[in-house]
């Protein structure tokens, strides 16, 4: 019984440990993957991303990326930088599909 409990605690720790490492890891990977696009919530950053998106093939991904960029611009104008970055990440995800 005690052995089984110890196994349970070990497994739980393992899962939580993996999650604690994975969540920032995913964000970091996304940040690195998008680094080449100079993503910043500034007029220059948004212009650069819009230019990147204009160059991709027409289709559903491009339309989604453009909508996300419109939302990012709107958030930037409202000074909500966190939401702006989130929309820019979504736009980049669509761009990279």
């Amino acid at each position: 019984m005690e052995r089984s409990n110890r196994f349970c605690v070990f497994t739980t720790n393992l899962i939580f440990g993996a999650l604690v490492l994975a969540v920032p890891g995913v964000s970091l990977t996304a940040a690195i993957a998008h680094e080449g696009h100079g993503m910043t919530c500034t007029e220059t950053g948004i212009n650069a991303m819009n230019a990147d998106i204009q160059a991709i093939r027409d289709g559903e991904a491009k339309t989604r990326a453009m909508k996300e960029m419109d939302a990012a611009q709107e958030m930037m104008e409202k000074k909500n930088m966190e939401a702006c970055m989130s929309h820019m990440h979504n736009a980049m995800d669509a761009y990279e599909e």
């Binding site: 100079g38 650069a48 204009q54 160059a55």
Partner: peptide, 9 residues
């Protein structure tokens, strides 16, 4: 990164 229009990948 600087060309406009961007050269397609």
């Amino acid at each position: 990164r600087g060309l406009y229009p961007r050269a397609p990948e």
